[in-house]
Simulated assay, not measured.
Amino acid sequence: MAPLQALSLLLLASLASSAASGYRSTLTHIDSKLGFTKAQLMRRAVHRSRLRAASMLPGYSTTLSSSNAGPRLRSGQAEYLMELAIGTPPVPFVALADTGSDLTWTQCQPCKLCFPQDTPVYDPTTSSSFSPVPCSSATCLSIWSRNCTPTALCRYRYGYEDGAYSAGGLGTETITFGSSAPGEAPAASAGGVAFGCGTDNGGDSYNSTGTVGLGRGSLSLVAQLGVGKFSYCLTDFFNTSLGSPLPAMPDMVLHFAGGADMTLHRDNYMSSDEEDSSFCLNIAGATSTSTSVLGNFQQQNIQMLFDITVGQMSFVPTDCSKL
């Protein structure tokens, strides 16, 4: 079985941008290369979903002290890795794509505490395009304002609700999207992107070297690139080339405020567990005090478009494998 095919994320640039066609990056599911069975993939996804749901409940806490963590974020349990490069010359940067936070950060030398990674740890001293951000800059004010002096460099500590965190210094760098491999879209770079150079990092890395923040704040990658929209399209969660073991079932329709309807086909809300010959509804109930979440399992083969300039989400059924 070839589970969890790759997908794409497209940052849509305005006509005034130097990259008028936008920036495109390949995304891969965090479990795609680990050889899990279909049942194991579902169990792992369910476990992460439950942790994410628990973090949204009132009174949820982790072992990370709030007095040391800085901003507290509800995200941190991402499902997809974004393949980028950072610096000059470029160093591979495999990051968790996180629409719930803003700061983009990667592990940096010299590491005080870093989790293992397969690629070299980024070293700002070997990059000709790295610049530290001073504490007095407007960029720093959005993330750190304590004990700031005119000559000090910007420091940060970013904490997530699942207990993960990153701490270090804020800098600017060149981020490279895409690949120069034959048959693929040419690489595109953006300079002067503010990011966290993390020398003290903890929590589950999910085979990443850091995080790309795709939220709505001023530090998010989307905002820094000057793009007003971004889109992603998730391919089939499982390999469906041999057909689906699920019986015929009716479509499910989600009704949104404003009149939009999202039609979910059978494979977007049901799955089969071949180990015990059962069928599972991949939708969990929520308490009256919790927030509803539209899961990535439901978003298979639906192109999602986020317009952060007006705070609007739109969607259209799409064969994501053909994009």
Results as ranks from 00 to 15, higher is better:
1 M>S: 09
6 A>V: 05
7 L>I: 06
9 L>C: 02
14 S>K: 08
15 L>H: 09
16 A>L: 12
16 A>N: 13
17 S>R: 03
23 Y>Q: 06
23 Y>T: 03
27 L>Q: 11
27 L>P: 07
38 K>H: 08
39 A>K: 07
40 Q>Y: 06
41 L>Y: 00
42 M>T: 14
44 R>L: 12
47 H>W: 07
49 S>F: 15
56 M>A: 11
73 L>R: 04
78 A>L: 04
80 Y>H: 06
86 I>M: 07
89 P>C: 11
90 P>C: 12
97 A>V: 08
99 T>F: 01
101 S>V: 01
101 S>C: 03
106 T>W: 05
115 F>M: 00
120 P>A: 03
142 S>E: 15
145 S>G: 12
157 R>Q: 05
157 R>G: 01
158 Y>V: 03
159 G>E: 00
162 D>P: 10
174 T>L: 10
174 T>A: 14
180 S>E: 14
181 A>G: 03
181 A>F: 02
182 P>Q: 10
192 G>Q: 04
194 A>C: 06
196 G>F: 03
201 N>C: 08
201 N>G: 06
205 S>D: 13
206 Y>T: 11
212 V>Y: 04
216 R>A: 13
217 G>W: 01
219 L>W: 01
220 S>A: 03
223 A>W: 02
225 L>I: 06
227 V>I: 11
231 S>M: 10
232 Y>K: 02
239 N>W: 10
239 N>F: 06
242 L>M: 14
243 G>T: 14
244 S>Q: 13
246 L>V: 14
246 L>K: 13
252 M>N: 00
255 H>Q: 10
256 F>T: 06
258 G>I: 07
258 G>P: 08
260 A>R: 08
261 D>S: 09
263 T>M: 12
264 L>H: 03
264 L>G: 00
266 R>E: 07
267 D>R: 10
271 S>C: 07
274 E>A: 15
274 E>D: 12
275 E>R: 05
280 C>Q: 15
284 A>C: 02
285 G>C: 08
296 N>V: 08
298 Q>N: 12
302 I>G: 06
302 I>S: 09
303 Q>R: 15
304 M>W: 10
309 T>N: 11
314 S>F: 09
318 T>E: 05
319 D>V: 08
319 D>P: 09
322 K>V: 14
323 L>S: 13
